[in-house]
């Protein structure tokens, strides 16, 4: 797949001296869905704003569809749609007018059929002549999505699209995302919700304190998550694993106080019964047994906290 967004050594320091992005490199392939996970203040919104032209980079470069976002801003920006995190809408304007406005602003000629399709898809058609201030919060977010889709972007940024949103809108939005993906649109979404990233993303990026800590295929992360560990705590520490127990899936805890067995929860035989029988046969006395699953959340928290270290 060709690259569609190419961020190279992007730095952003705000006027007060705060460095929101510390040399971000990020390559996004055409047609993929990338979820950017990160705590508050990690730099997710700054990254998106800089790609979209709302903030200017201190150094580094961004190319969208091969067009530099500064030198060739017209070509680059006309490919991008943005659904911002904050609900920024003209309160006295009618829904369909504000959506048409967005299309025009991006230089696209009027297309009432498309606007109708988008409004229907987002359950806004009945509200098309309502003023925006009359809408609920969730409806307003739908309007923001409609505005971004109105100019048929090839790259869509969704900044925390489901923050404070009801189940119905979340489902509608995931459907839209799936449809856009079928049409080959590249989608970058930021979120706090790991389940959301798991549900729709192809790749997952983790950002903290202005740095990308990891970008990986979701399936690989999921594979790591599918593993479960069984910790067999021993009443007496041992120096090495008895020969009768030796296998790739079993290791000794650092201080020799426990055996750690990793297994796949989804496989038919986990091998736990055999393990415990073998442990007993080897004459080891058990103190306790603990199981734990490493989740995407653990991976995420570990990564983010490594970033905290001085």
């Amino acid at each position: 797949m060709p690259l569609i967004v190419d961020v190279v050594a992007l730095r952003k320091a705000y006027a007060g001296g705060f460095e929101a992005l510390k040399g971000v490199d990020l390559q996004i392939e055409e047609g993929e869905i990338l979820a950017l996970l990160g705590p508050n203040g990690a730099g997710k919104t700054t990254l998106i704003s800089t790609v979209c032209g709302i903030t200017t980079a201190t150094s580094g470069s961004v190319k969208v569809g091969g067009h530099d976002t500064v030198k060739d801003f017209r070509a680059a920006r006309s490919m991008i749609g943005l659904v911002p995190q904050e609900i920024n809408l003209e309160p006295f304007e009618k829904v369909q007018n504000t959506v048409k406005f967005s299309r025009g602003l991006f230089g696209k000629s009027a297309n009432p059929a498309l606007i109708e399709k988008i409004l229907r898809q987002l359950s806004l058609w009945d509200k098309r002549d309502s003023q925006i201030r009359e809408l609920s919060g969730g409806m307003k977010r739908r309007v923001l999505i409609a505005k971004a889709l109105s100019h048929e972007p090839r790259v869509l940024f969704l900044d925390e699209p489901t923050a404070g949103v009801d189940v119905e809108l979340r489902r509608d939005m995931w459907e839209i995302v799936a449809e856009l993906k079928r049409d080959g649109v590249t989608i970058i979404l930021t979120t706090h919700y790991i389940e959301e990233a798991e549900a729709i993303a192809d790749r997952i990026g983790v950002i903290a304190q202005g740095e990308i800590l990891l970008v990986e295929e979701k399936s690989k992360l999921m594979a790591r998550m599918g593993k479960k560990e069984l910790e067999v705590q021993l009443s007496e520490p041992i120096l090495e694993i008895p020969a009768s127990l030796a296998s790739d899936t079993l290791r000794l805890k650092g201080d020799g106080s426990a055996l750690i067995y990793s297994y796949d929860t989804k496989s038919e035989r986990t091998g736990i019964t055999k393990l415990l029988a073998d442990v007993a046969a080897a004459g080891l006395v058990l103190r306790d047994v603990v199981t734990r699953q490493s989740s995407l959340e653990d991976i995420f928290v570990d990564l983010v906290h490594e970033g905290d270290a001085p």
């Binding site: 979209c52 032209g53 680059a76 006309s78 943005l82 309160p91 602003l105 991006f106 505005k147």
Partner: peptide, 13 residues
């Protein structure tokens, strides 16, 4: 009201 984000991100000079 913040809607200026759209102007800034649009392909307009």
């Amino acid at each position: 009201i913040g809607t200026i984000f759209e102007l800034l991100s649009a392909p307009v000079n």
